[in-house]
């Protein structure tokens, strides 16, 4: 049914706009969680803990993955086929590494004695990072589809493929920035 929507030059594509609106919704969910966090913390009885190093590495990993995917998108548009495929692959690997690192981060934190049943600060940490990872997994699923297309279809720059890739990369940047925000938030407001 894509035919219903025609791209009007000079205007943002409706689907891209829709994606942004959707991101605003997701952002509100995390805004609510972080607000609840602040409210609960200011009420006292709050356990402070320092984060296992995994979380620093995962942050680097997801930030780099965003750069890689951006490069891949630029290469796709400018006709650099091998750059497009390589950076897509690298972005995917770095993105997956993020999820794996989060997982090991959680187990390390758990081993430190911060568990779900204890102080609410731990519960918040797991809940916020966990819900974020769920959103990253959505991005990874989209990246997998993008890779399947990239490696199985003949390389061609079409409006439709460009738009789809653009949407995926946009979403990925979003979960990346969201993570950076959440991480800084969790670091600063302990």
């Amino acid at each position: 049914m894509e035919h219903v929507i025609r791209f009007q030059p000079g205007k943002i594509h409706p689907q891209k706009f829709a994606l942004w609106v959707g991101m605003a919704g997701i952002a509100m969910m995390f805004a609510a969680l972080t607000s609840a966090y602040v409210v609960k913390q200011s009420a006292g009885n709050w356990l402070e803990f320092s984060f296992p190093n995994h979380f620093y590495f995962s942050t680097i990993s997801i930030v780099l993955s965003s750069f890689a995917l951006h490069k891949s998108f630029v290469d796709y548009k400018t006709g650099n086929e091998s750059g497009y495929k390589w950076f897509l692959f690298i972005g995917f690997i770095l993105g997956s590494a993020f999820v794996v690192l989060q997982y090991f981060g959680w187990t390390a934190l758990y081993a430190m004695g911060v568990d779900l049943k204890g102080n609410a600060s731990g519960g918040f940490f797991y809940l916020i990072t966990g819900l974020h990872v769920i959103h990253v997994l959505g991005g990874i699923a989209a990246l997998i589809v993008t890779m399947l297309n990239a490696f199985s279809l003949k390389y061609k720059v079409t409006e439709k493929r460009k738009l789809r890739f653009d949407l995926v990369v946009n979403y990925w940047h979003f979960v990346d920035i969201l993570w950076v925000y959440l991480f800084i938030f969790l670091l600063v407001i302990k």
Binding site: I26, A32, A36, K40, L116, G123, F124, L127
Partner: peptide, 22 residues
């Protein structure tokens, strides 16, 4: 506003099933 409700529900689910005490 609906996503905020969803956040509350996720916390409730955690309280019900994961043993947190939000």
């Amino acid at each position: 506003t609906f996503p905020v409700l969803a956040s509350g529900f996720f916390m409730l689910i955690a309280d019900r099933s994961l043993g947190t005490s939000f």
